[in-house]
Design a binder for these strands. Structure first.
Length: 349
DNA sequence: GCGAAACACCTCATGTATAG
DNA sequence: CTATACATGAGGTGTTTCGC
């Protein structure tokens, strides 16, 4: 393992960032798994790094320094955690539903299995269970962990075509339990609707990866749901409450009701007022135009803060990816790049 | 090594079945 | 109809594990 191998994968999480925007596919947000806190943090950072860089590979490395900076912990502690995590992460699995397109299956077409239901509605669900990783290595001397994602995970990160949930990783640092972070991600996904799906107890247990534990619902509620809700409310962005549906005395469903706090609402209106000219609809743009304008855009001062790249060509490459598929990029980045395209170049579209 | 979270075990309350 | 035993779920407390 040499340094050149990671030439396209530079240090991504750096000290001067007050925000760490994270994008995860909704399938991943709602999949069922159980990790330790450190494992989940590492996975979140790695998945996000891979997704944002968009290099199309399924290999990524995270240095102890990156891990320390993102989580605001000491570097020595980050070294220890990465080392421990590398041992256990290989055995971890996650579950999510796969949708078998019955039309395609009947016609014996390839790719009849996907992570989102086909629009025509003729599908069956296959519960699948996969390893997170194909391989992992911890380079003790250099202080980084190298992650090789399994193919299904790579698919979930890069190619779902599914909508993504975005949030700021720094908002989750103060949460010290894995379950709270997972619930926070779910809340972020559903925040605009004001409530999560009404899910059976078993679905909730699946979500937290504790299917075989907590034979008593009361235990599950008290040990998993209540503390997580408390942690999220303490964080200050949302005000969430638990709704439970009962048949007689037996709890059958749970649902999380979500209110944005006043602070958050003010922040949102401020953002939308500050940027009245935001264009929400992205234009069609040809491959030739993408090549031309990405090389122009990468040199603009107004968006230079988006770059973590060592040189202009790799930044231009990143911009080109966003121009090509803005819907699967971080929306804030996409908006800024399209705005710059319209206001600072001769692009007409 | 310390404090907090997770877990296991226990008790209490309430609903249900059965015998008198 | 009522009394009693039994079943199930909610809440309380001591012990272990985990994160830092």
């Amino acid at each position: 393992m040499t340094a050149n191998k990671f030439a396209s994968s530079p240090i991504f999480y750096t000290e001067n960032k007050n925000e760490i925007p994270v994008s995860k596919s909704n399938t991943l947000i709602e999949a069922g798994f159980d990790l330790t806190l450190a494992e989940h943090d590492l996975m979140t950072l790695a998945i996000n790094k891979l997704h944002k860089q968009g290099t199309g590979g399924n290999e990524v490395f995270i240095t102890a320094k990156e891990f320390a900076v993102a989580n605001k912990v000491s570097e020595t502690h980050a070294y220890q955690q990465l080392k421990q995590t590398a041992d256990t992460l290989m055995t971890r699995k996650l579950r999510f539903p796969l949708y078998v397109d019955l039309d395609k299956k009947r016609n014996r077409e390839p790719n009849c299995v996907g992570v989102v239901p086909p629009e025509h509605g003729r599908y069956e669900i296959a519960e699948s269970k996969y390893n997170w990783l194909q391989g992992i290595a911890y380079a003790e001397a250099s202080g980084f962990v190298y992650l090789h994602f399994s193919d299904p995970l790579h698919f979930l990160i890069e190619k779902t075509g599914d909508s993504y949930t975005n949030y700021d990783f720094t908002n989750t640092i103060q949460m010290k339990s894995f379950n709270a972070k997972r619930l926070y991600e779910l809340v972020c996904k559903w925040k605009d609707l004001g409530k999560t799906k009404l899910m059976y107890i078993d679905e909730w247990k699946e979500f937290f990866g504790v299917t075989d534990k907590y034979p008593r619902t009361a235990e599950f509620k008290r040990r998993i749901l209540d503390p997580s809700i408390e942690a999220i409310n303490a964080q200050g962005e949302f005000e969430i409450t638990l709704n439970q549906e009962k048949v007689g005395r037996t709890i059958t469903h749970f649902q999380i009701l979500i209110k944005k706090t006043k602070k958050e609402k003010i922040k949102e209106t401020a953002t939308s007022k500050r940027d009245p000219n935001t264009v929400d609809i992205f234009t069609n743009i040809t491959d030739a135009q993408i090549a031309k304008y990405s090389t122009i855009l990468c040199k603009l001062g107004s968006i230079s803060d988006l770059s973590n790249f060592p040189d202009y060509p790799s930044f231009a490459n990143w911009i080109a990816k966003i121009l090509k598929a803005p819907e699967s990029a971080n929306p804030a980045h996409a908006k800024r790049i399209f705005k710059a395209l319209r206001t600072e170049t001769d692009f007409k579209g």
